[in-house]
Write a protein that binds this DNA or RNA. Structure first.
Lengths: 229, 229
DNA sequence: TGCGGCCGCCTTGCATACAAGCGCCCGGAC
DNA sequence: GTCCGGGCGCTTGTATGCAAGGCGGCCGCA
């Protein structure tokens, strides 16, 4: 199962990607402890590359570490999550605005093609495929902004919030609504309407945030994000 | 000289701060190689904590690493630098806008106090002290936005660009001009003028970027950032 | 019986030893 | 003379061993 997939990469880099994946996929839930020895055994490597992977993930914010006390999957407070959602709305809006100004013709066509895909997937009602294509749509917009640094920041923010966007997004009603919100964004971008694209994207992200809020409120208190640090 | 300053922190963390400092201060220039063994000797530690520090710095973007080929201080292309400046303008503008909306009364007064300090320092003409206070002004605005995540992103971006903002900022004429630009920002924030604060801050950052462009153009070709990746 | 301090285990932090990849240099051939 | 290929050295990547710090449990005392 855990053979060294790609001998070109280093073990530490490989582990970083795998652990990050387990976090954003939800296999490792926020608050879960990351035991170096256990991870080393699980991936059949020594502790050294595990430690390096953990350090990198800590720097990227996905996990929290305290000296001599180990690492846990980051478990931000409600206020921190709210702040990250707000920042994500701003960043995504910026990307959309820039994309509206700068996308090439073929980029705009590719964007519309993904949106068409999403339209089809709404009817199929498969949340997994839908979310995958949704990610591609956002990715196309980030790339269309033609600013790699901004795109990286936005993607990193999405990754950090991913563990908190998972469950609510699976509600069926959400798919169609999400598609409609995207429609406004895509139309504005293709038309070159910078401010419209930004506004539509911001609204979309803020709706996602509100959905998350509703979802959390329905959770038993023990499973909610920590209210205090 | 290099005694273990604070026994509470781990060596790796300490090294990370020290190396980051040498980069933003300009002691380690973009493109300089970071030899693990050499750093280990210089700081009188083993390679292990050095490696961990390097991994964290790589994750934060201050240095570049390639497998089996070591680490160098990040040396972004001209296009990448331009993109980071653009993103910084957007981020700082966002912070300013939020600060205009959300700063408390005492935060606004503190902001004005720093601006007063800067006014005095312009006349003294000491670039070092001026830049230090300038940093405090921006920091106060980041904090005033009341969104820690956004503030962190903005500060990280400033840190990454710091090596490229150093030299041109020392021109004497720049100080007075910079102070004037700040004045617009501070007045708008204190007044609660969200859009005005954002616009003024964006202008300020873009002027800094343009100054950098002029500075680079005057440099001998060999010392300029790489034009291609 | 409840509380506080001490001891020991388990985990992380650091050092060192070993392996493996990459680049450079030199030699040979065209 | 130039270009290609192989060996050597230096660097990074990984494993392992050892030390130190934190936390929980246990025991003693009030």
């Amino acid at each position: 199962m855990s053979l060294p997939d790609d001998p070109r990469r280093t073990l530490a880099e490989d582990l970083r990607l795998r652990i990050a994946d387990e976090i954003v996929q939800g296999t490792l839930v926020p608050g879960a402890a990351l035991d170096e020895t256990e991870l080393a055994h699980r991936f059949e490597v020594s502790r050294t590359p595990v430690r390096e992977a953990i350090r990198q993930l800590a720097a990227s914010g996905l996990i929290d570490t305290k000296p001599h006390r180990g690492a846990v999957v980051a478990r931000p407070t409600e206020a921190e999550i709210a702040g990250m959602f707000e920042a994500m709305a701003d960043l995504e809006a910026l990307c959309a605005a820039r994309a509206a100004e700068r996308m090439t013709g073929s980029e705009r066509r590719a964007l519309e093609a993904v949106q068409e895909e999403l339209r089809a997937l709404v009817h199929l009602g498969d949340p997994h495929q839908f979310l995958e294509a949704d990610e591609r749509l956002h990715d196309a917009i980030h790339a269309g902004a033609h600013n790699d640094y901004l795109a990286d920041l936005t993607r990193a923010t999405r990754a950090r919030l991913q563990p908190f966007r998972h469950a609510p997004a699976r509600e069926v009603g959400r798919l169609a609504a999400s598609h409609g919100e995207h429609e406004r964004v895509v139309v504005a971008i293709v038309r070159g309407d910078r401010d419209g694209a930004a506004a539509a994207m911001r609204d979309h992200v803020l709706i996602v945030r509100d959905d998350y809020g509703v979802y959390v409120a329905a959770l038993p208190a023990a499973e909610r994000p920590a209210p205090a640090p």
